[in-house]
Amino acid sequence: MTPAKLFALIQYPLPHHLLSRLIGRLADCRLPWLKDALIRAFIRQFKVDMGEAQEPDPSAYPSFNDFFTRPLKDGARPIGKGLTSPADGTLSQFGPIGHGRMIQAKGHDFTAADLLGGDLEAAERYRDGSFATVYLSPRDYHRVHMPVAGTLREMVYVPGRLFSVNTATTHHVPNLFARNERLVCHFDTEHGPMVLVLVGAMIVAAIETVWAGQITPLPRGGVQRIRFDTLVHLEKGEEMGRFKLGSTVVMAFSESVAFNDLAAEQMVRMGQRLGGFG
């Protein structure tokens, strides 16, 4: 058995939510000696480039979570033309949605319906569209931005497990993105419907959006449609949400996307052009 497969298998019996919430409390700690030690150790371990940060002094952050979701300097991520990456990270998979199915990894795929919490009507919009998945590693910038301009139609919380979403797990845990806790954000765009799915993961303490604040964790229960009182329109490149510790964004479009000359598992940056519609 390979180390990657073993890593995936040992996650099944773990108390995912308990571990994640405990880590979340630690990450919110504001004791200067503790949070500074955590931040500096993290920077060393993952070689984080603080030169890009709006605040480059690690000790200036009130908590580890504030450091982890740090904003970047203005202009650090130019916004390209066409469809752009919503986040810094690894472009895990991308391409056409074949009869409602998306690729997770070699030998694994999942349905749009499962990803969207069993919503068959919503899934039908993307049956023959396009998708892309971006994995945010610990060292990456952890805010998520709009790949195109859009108006929020609906937000849905889907409960689930919290498996790791790194490469080892995506290759060995079937239906990973449709198993994990996630936040499904439906938008109307000039290119038709678009959905951005923010997928939770092991030790991800919370997911936030700019229009509703922290959403996860929610009390245990089924799929929940979350109401909002005002119209939310976001321009291309605007922040739409963030992860408190790393995870994955899956985006899907009803229209086909002509992707650039890209390769699965290549690094991308927020705002980088991924392709065009047509």
Rank of each mutant, 00 (worst) to 15 (best):
V156A: 09
H172Y: 13
D114R: 13
V156M: 14
G150F: 00
Y157E: 13
I103Y: 03
A112S: 12
V144Y: 00
L91E: 07
R127Q: 13
F110I: 00
T133N: 06
N175A: 12
A113C: 11
P159S: 10
L120F: 01
G98I: 13
A168P: 04
H172S: 10
H171D: 12
P159W: 08
E124F: 01
F131K: 04
M146G: 09
G107H: 10
G89Y: 01
V144C: 09
S137Y: 01
F131A: 06
G118C: 10
H142M: 08
A113T: 13
E121T: 12
M102T: 02
D119N: 14
N180V: 01
Y135M: 05
T169Y: 04
R125F: 08
G89F: 02
V144D: 01
S92R: 13
L136P: 08
E124V: 00
G117V: 09
P159N: 07
F94R: 09
H99A: 15
A113Y: 00
T90Q: 13
H172N: 15
L162R: 08
Y141D: 07
S137P: 07
A178W: 02
P147A: 01
S137W: 01
R127P: 01
V158P: 02
I97E: 04
G89P: 05
L183I: 09
I97A: 11
N175G: 09
P86E: 03
F110K: 00
A105V: 02
R101L: 13
Y126A: 09
E121C: 02
R139L: 04
Y157Q: 06
R125H: 13
T151V: 12
G150W: 00
V165H: 03
K106E: 14
V156I: 14
D140W: 04
I103C: 12
S164M: 05
S92H: 02
F94S: 06
T90R: 15
Y141C: 07
T84H: 04
S164R: 03
G160Y: 05
V148N: 08
A132T: 08
R127W: 09
V165N: 01
R125I: 00
T133L: 11
G129S: 07
R179K: 14
V158D: 07
R125Q: 14
N175Y: 10
N175S: 12
D128Y: 10
L176I: 13
R139V: 11
V148I: 15
Q104R: 06
G98V: 14
N166P: 05
E181T: 03
H145W: 08
I97L: 11
N175T: 07
V134E: 05
G118P: 09
H171P: 03
R139E: 11
R139T: 05
N180Q: 04
Q93R: 15
F131N: 08
L120E: 15
V173P: 00
T133Y: 05
Y141I: 04
A123C: 03
A122R: 14
A168H: 13
M146W: 05
A113M: 12
A105G: 09
L91A: 12
G107M: 10
F163P: 00
E124R: 14
A132N: 10
A105Y: 10
Y141V: 07
H99D: 15
A123S: 11
I97R: 07
L116V: 07
G118F: 02
G107P: 09
L176V: 06
V144A: 03
S85L: 04
V173Y: 00
V134H: 04
A168F: 09
G98Q: 14
R125L: 15
M155A: 15
N175R: 15
L116S: 07
G118S: 11
N175P: 00
